[in-house]
Write a protein that binds this DNA or RNA. Structure first.
Lengths: 251, 251
DNA sequence: GGTCATGTTGCGGTATGTGCAACGTCCGTT
DNA sequence: AACGGACGTTGCACATACCGCAACATGACC
């Protein structure tokens, strides 16, 4: 809508690929050097880009600050965290929390064996949206039209032989997931990793987030993982209840 | 420099404080609603902001992606990481890596006891720039004028009685740090936490990053921590050497 | 000292962003 | 049901602020 801002914002993912000098930016944007310079200067003033000694630009530290703050203002995460830790302590496996936003699924929390950590390392990376259990749960709840449109527009990388191959298969899987209320990924992303997930619902029943348990199949068989479903689903429901405004439910 | 972009970027930290609706954004920006709307739409198209069900805007998931990618393209971090892990395995304490950028100091890596993790949780948060050992190291190496200007413009929060109280004290401390080549923070940020740090220098001798060891003084006395200085400094030098283009030095 | 590559500056034309006012839409209220 | 208020949205005319150009620094390399 706004040409100038549009161009400026286009610079950011461009620099995310790696540092670039003025001319490279100008060429990639399809604008004159002076125009690119003005945009970069404005971005620089806001700390969004940084200029290294060799004068090339790269993304700036302010992005970390913003991402961090964006993160902390996600109230689902805040509410869910202690429950996820409890779940982890009970069964020992890796716990993930994810949300859907404008065609993307992002992990917003992770608890790993015995060591609670917000594993930002997974955040932002292209989540395996076509295979991850949490992605299935979040997409399964989208309105029919949006779900279909999104499924058509996705790529279906064959991470493993069990990866979801195409849109029709994905939509069928989503229908199943929606029907039964939980999702799984048995080696669809990494051959040896299994995963089960459950939806977290808000007051209106919409899925606001999803959580999952992951474990390598050399440690835990898929059956053993499935046996943990009741605990996982109970956790998800507790979180949903609290999120919906029953803070002192099963205290 | 560019009014439109400037306004658009101003929206981001504003939303970082919490969700806001169109009118609030317009008022804070001092522009007409329609103008704010256009800016927000452009930001939205780029995933920088997200519109929740109640139509209020908040920061979007794309920020995570950008921060993540910015992160991975920091080559100091990449080079340093294995050395930091080795250091941690050797002495067991928490290891930090930080860089300076445009008046800010940010942690870009962390290794905690027996569990290597990029502790993104600290990134973006205002680092205790006036007391942290790594901050002292990075600021001590700035050109005289910039160092002085920055010191004047900083706040000096009294985290503890040992926190750096004001600009003159800070500049004196920086002079000491620069002279002797290492820095410490004994309870200047948190009463019970001690910390020693060493500079990582590039080929031209400039400090490109700094690393540190932290430990609670109930576990390790400050003397014991100081005894680890040689190991820490050796690590820092190894990283600096490799970063300067001697990849196969002390293999 | 010359040449090349790259970043920077000043300037006029006009595309582009701006504010205004009218219109939708969704609430809650009587 | 009808009304009213609060917000978000749209179309438009004006002029601002952005754009590309071309000339000018700057610095590296030979």
């Amino acid at each position: 809508m706004s040409q100038t801002v549009d161009r400026a914002l286009t610079i950011l993912p461009l620099l995310a690929e790696g540092p670039a000098n003025l001319e490279q930016v100008a060429v990639r944007l399809g604008v004159h050097k002076s125009t690119a310079l003005r945009l970069l200067r404005t971005l620089h003033e806001h700390g969004m880009v940084y200029r290294q000694q060799d004068q090339r630009y790269r993304l700036g530290a302010r992005l970390f600050a913003l991402a961090q703050q964006a993160f902390e203002s996600l109230d689902v995460r805040e509410i869910a965290h202690p429950h996820l830790v409890a779940l982890n302590e009970r069964c020992g496996h890796t716990v993930h929390l994810a949300v859907y936003e404008d065609g993307e699924v992002v992990y917003i929390d992770k608890v790993d064996s015995r060591y609670p950590v917000r594993m930002y390392s997974r955040i932002g990376k292209p989540v395996a949206i076509t295979v991850a259990a949490v992605a299935k749960l979040l997409l399964a709840d989208l309105p029919e039209g949006e779900r279909r449109a999104l499924a058509e527009r996705l790529d279906y990388p064959a991470y493993t032989p069990r990866s979801t191959p195409n849109a029709p298969a994905f939509l069928r899987e989503l229908a199943v997931v929606r029907e039964r209320g939980w999702a799984a990924d048995f080696g669809g992303h990494e051959e040896s990793i299994n995963c089960v997930g459950a939806p977290i619902r808000g007051a209106d029943g919409r899925v606001v987030a999803a959580c999952s348990l992951s474990a390598p199949n050399v440690v835990v068989s898929s059956d053993e993982l499935l046996a943990l479903l009741p605990v996982l689903r109970a956790t998800a429901e507790t979180i949903g209840a609290e999120y919906s405004g029953k803070p002192l439910s099963a205290q």
